[in-house]
Amino acid sequence: MTISFKQIEEKLKTEAKRLLESGQVSVVLAYGKGYDEKHPMPYVARNPSDVANIVFNEYCNYNMARYLVRYPAGTKIAVAVKAADSRAVIQLIQEEKVKREDLVLLGIPVYGMKNPKTQEIIDGKTTGGLYNPVLYDILLGDEVHGQAIQLPYDVLAAYESMDKEVRFAFWKKEFDKCIRCYACRKACPMCYCDPCFIDQNKPKWGDKSPKFHGNLMYHLTRFHHLAGRCIDCGECSRACPVDIPLYLFHKKVARECEEMFGQAAGMSIEDKPALVNFRVDDSDKILE
């Protein structure tokens, strides 16, 4: 079975048109034309006439849940979500940043998305390894079944078995590259703090110039802030202009959280985010 991107695009257009015309939503978040086919852009349709600009192809890997928090509370929004994006929406609902009743989720079951930079297929290695949206109102296309599930955490094994000195050298090399453009923060659906801790001057948490120690402070704290919330869409590492494999660290933290607290981020609206919750019978072993 292959995915017909054209078919999804058509369905996306019909649904967007219907929702905007009926006044059910005032904004549709989807994908639009970029400067070429390989670089589609996030697109906001506000009028039924905008719908013609919506596109969908294998390079549409942006996480549109990123833009939900930018609209005032109560705005009715329809958003196109792939598997990881729907988890981001669930996580935002858990954190009460958006309300379920304000959203219409246009679920896109899809695999074989490509990274425009490297042409590699985005699979379980760089994302959560899901193909069907976890939560949706309207599913555009049939659910994907029978596709080999690639375990999202397998890629970690090589890094976990590294000696700590080697691992530190690896991260030092990676963080040294960081130019502090904050593209990871901008691409991340869960990064909505205003101001971000790194932009604060009182207290000044870390150096703002792109030097190793400031970069380390920024990234480690960001990993911590996303602990139990990262939904593994991999957008941070694709947005990164210097190709820091941020998804590796996020995956590691996500796996530890899943093992310690028994819940993965963004899988159910009823859950509470792992770090603003506790169980009295949490084991002290997690601190060892």
Partner: peptide, 10 residues
């Protein structure tokens, strides 16, 4: 979580 992060960073 802090402990795991410190550990994985080396």
């Amino acid at each position: 979580v802090t402990k795991k992060i410190l550990e994985f960073s080396g």
